[in-house]
Each structure stands twice: as C-alpha cells, then as structure tokens.
Design a protein around this nucleic acid. Structure first.
Lengths: 194, 194
DNA sequence: ATTATCTATAGATCTATAGATAATGC
DNA sequence: ATTATCTATAGATCTATAGATAATGC
C-alpha cells in the first residue's frame, strides 16, 4: 500500500480554500492560514516553496476542479429533467463556501501574474459556469423561444441568483430545502401571476 | 455665493469610489488612490486625517446614499408598473460600478471596526436592497401567490441576478438595452415554455 | 535519512505622522 | 493666513529565506 496520500498537504489546502474563497486573496495573509492550522507562518513554505501566489492558484484550481466533478456527478445522478438537476445542484452549492466569481475576477485575479490570472479565469468558466450552461443547452427545448439559443445567459443569471441565498440564509428562518425550491420555482416559472 | 463646494474632496471621493467598489478594501492601497489622482500618498491625509478606514467608510456611505436616491428617483419617474420600474432601475445599475454587496460583507467589512462594519451593512440593506424590496412589495398583487409575502426574497434574487450582466457584458455582443430586456423578461416570465 | 516543524530575520510594502513648501485669497 | 500639496520617515505588517530542531521510519 502506498503511504497515505499527503493528508497534511490536503489539510492545508482545505484550510486555505475556506479562507481564500470566503475572504479573497489579499484579505487573507499567510499568517491567517498558518494560525488556522496551528502552525507558524514560515512553515507553510515547506509545503509551498513558491509562496502565496502559488498556494492560492493551487487552492482555487483544486476547488474549481472539485466543483466541476461534483456538478457533473450530481446532474448525472439526478432524475433526467431540468428541474431535478437544478435542485440537486443548488442544494449542493448552497452548502459550499460561496464562490463569488465576480469578486475573484475583479478583485483577486488582478493581483496575480497575467498567466495565472488567465488560467484561473478559464477554470472559472470551465468548472463553474460551463456545466450549468451545458445543462440549460441540453434542455433548451423546455425553454421559452427567446432563451433557446442563450444557455449562457440563463446559466449565468441562474448562478448569480444563487448568491442571494447566502444572504437570505443569514437573515431568514427557512430551511435550505425551502429556499432552494423557492428559487428554482422563481427562475423556471417567473415572478408574475399567470 | 458660497465658495464652490469642495470639488477637490468630491473628486477624491469619486476616485476612491471607483477603486474601492471595483477592487475592494484591502486590494486598494492609499498609494493606488493617490496615483490615480496624480498626487502623493501622504497628501490624502490632508482631506482624510483619520486615514484609510475613514476614507473607505465615507466613500461607501456616499456611494450607497447616492444609490438610494437614484433608485427612488428612477422608480418615481418611471411609468407606474413593475416592469417599467425594473427596467429603469437595471438600465441605471448596469452602468454603475458593480456594487457586489456579497463581496463587501464577506471580504471588506471584517477588516473594519465592528461599529463601522455594522454601519455599512445597515446602509447596504437600506440603500441597496430596501428600495427594490419596497418595489416588489408595492406590486405584490402582480406576483405569484407564493411570492406575495416575500418581497425580500424576490428582491434579493433580482438584485443578485443583475450581477451576471457585468460578466455577460464582457463576453457578449449585445447592447445594454437588449440584456436588460432579456433579464427582466426572464425574471418576470420565467425560463420555461408555457 | 527524511519529514515537518520551529526561530530569527531580511526586504518590501503599507499606513500614518511631522514638518517644509508652494499657491491662493484677503 | 489658509489651503493643498510635498519630502522624509517611523512603525507595523507581510512575504520569503536560512538554518536549527524535533519526530518518525528504515
């Protein structure tokens, strides 16, 4: 049996992931991460000799790849209709740390080297956005005529509307399942009386 | 005639507003702001002797109050129906620097003193959120039954879905007006064929 | 011997302060 | 005299490096 796979390094990435995704690149210091791990700041360089930027890039890419895997898996396992797939996706997303792609692109990526920034931006698209876009493309015949050729538009709107659930969760009193059901009904059926 | 009202200070706030709202509190340094103004970093302390936090708070509060004033004005001047009000609101919002309240709450406010953070969080609600919530409350009889007592939910979803337009604008080829119309139709009518 | 930490510290950057200087208004 | 800038710099914080130390595995 191979030795157990770098659980220490994975643990480090888990902690960094939580901090970086919720507070962003510049707002999180290496000392914050070390403190959360119960070690000293300099010790991080044993696992990531290339420093903060490299740690951030690896953390975010791992996070995004995991997201893509999970989204694809959830959609494959759900009942094969649009609403069921969306429900599974949102129930999972709402339990994750909020990704906030807009924040990353506007606030975090400009602090990185252009190459790394481009790499992450591409992964945001491929792992965060494309799976949802593909889902709406697959079920485009269920959509209104004006949306049939716009899976990116409806996908983007849907994803960003999920962000509001994090805020509602803080103030509201409903269960996750209720919120998810309400959001999906809203997006699919519309707000207006019919 | 009173002397012309501190145009220099207002100019400073305009520049700070642009930087702080797009990149966030920690990612923007005083040097960045000074550079954008063509002055030296230390010179900022003439206008804001209390330093960066105070400058940030004043910038954001001014931004939010302006937002509230404009939202109220746009809704008062629009044709008195839900769709017209929403259209005016979104056409204006999409031309503003993206507010990204979620980023502010998660990433920026924790860096401030608790009092200042609470003050800004309250202003985000009162100036960014409440006007839209009030609009949906006013026209609740146009909404589906399940949404009639949930103006905050539909308001939050609507606001966060606007965020996706900033991304779509970057990649897409449509005019602002087309995007706005498409978004409003989607939220009001829903995605599904009927 | 290897792995994972530590202490100590250099160098860079950031906020903030002190005091000088130039331009403007009475 | 007031207003708005400047230079110079202190003090804090952050990233990163160097070398020591402790624990583990053969």
């Amino acid at each position: 049996m191979s030795k157990q796979p770098n659980s220490s390094r994975e643990n480090l990435l888990d902690t960094a992931e939580h901090l970086f995704t919720s507070r962003g690149y510049t707002a999180v210091t290496l000392k914050d991460i070390a403190k959360a791990l119960g070690i000293k700041q300099a010790s991080l360089y044993y696992h990531f000799p290339l420093g903060k930027e490299d740690l951030y890039v690896e953390t975010i890419l791992r996070h995004l790849e995991h997201r893509r895997t999970m989204l694809k898996k959830l959609m494959a396992e759900a009942k094969p209709d649009l609403e069921s797939c969306l429900r599974q996706v949102v129930i999972w997303l709402i339990k994750q740390p909020p990704l906030n792609g807009a924040r990353m692109i506007l606030s975090d990526l400009p602090q990185l080297s252009p190459e790394k920034a481009a790499q992450i931006e591409s992964a945001i698209y491929h792992c965060g956005f494309a799976p949802i876009e593909d889902l709406f493309a697959k079920y485009r015949h269920d959509l209104q005529d004006s949306l049939q050729e716009e899976p990116g538009f409806i996908g983007g709107t849907f994803l960003s509307s999920i962000e509001s659930l994090y805020a509602v969760k803080r103030y509201g009193f409903k269960s996750d399942e209720e919120l998810v059901a309400q959001l999906i009904t809203l997006v699919l059926q519309g707000a207006l009386k019919r």
